[in-house]
Amino acid sequence: MADGNGSNFDQFAAGVFSNNPVLVQLLGMCPTLAVTNSVENALVMGAAVTFVVVMSNLITSLLRNLIQPHVRILIFTLTIATFVTIADMALRAYMFDVSKKLGAFVPLIIVNCIIICRAEVVAIKCSVSRSLADAFGMGLGFTMALTILGIVREILGAGTLLKQPVLPAAFVENGHNWVIMILPPGAFLTLGVVVGVVNHLRSRKATGGVA
């Protein structure tokens, strides 16, 4: 884990790969499961979380010498809730259709543990540049994990990718698409398999690359 040591770039890269919030730390599972039935939803959700984690890390890091330890959780929560509300209003103003699909999962970013965890672990004790590098890494890592799930589920479930058909038309017309992938069970199954694959790759890496 790159907390504290290494360059800002290491901090950024850790969030995307070795310390990926979803696939390695298993945080922020609710939106990961709920909004990945299409790639578009996954990307918008990823962008919204990235915005909130960047703003929360920025504010926390700027105020880190003023925040009293007692009230820090309160301040984190207040900051996060504020920027989530802003993100929610912006989505409803500029991306109305997607925001309707995401529904309650936009306000639920408030309780996404990734964000409060980054404030507590990194932003409260690190410089602004480092906190930002961390936030962008985590945001990108989160978006990437969601997109992977979105790609799998959308292709298998609807035969499309970003609403463009990618599989032969007969796949959907003859009812061979796996509707279960778009439904809730498909989310659990896909994430379970993806987490298994990631664990497998990590253990191979740890033992020197020989399977």
């Binding site: 003023l66 925040i67 007692h70 009230v71 301040i75």
Partner: peptide, 9 residues
């Protein structure tokens, strides 16, 4: 001392 920041924020 402990809560001014919360109120200001």
């Amino acid at each position: 001392a402990e809560s001014w920041l919360v109120l200001v924020l």
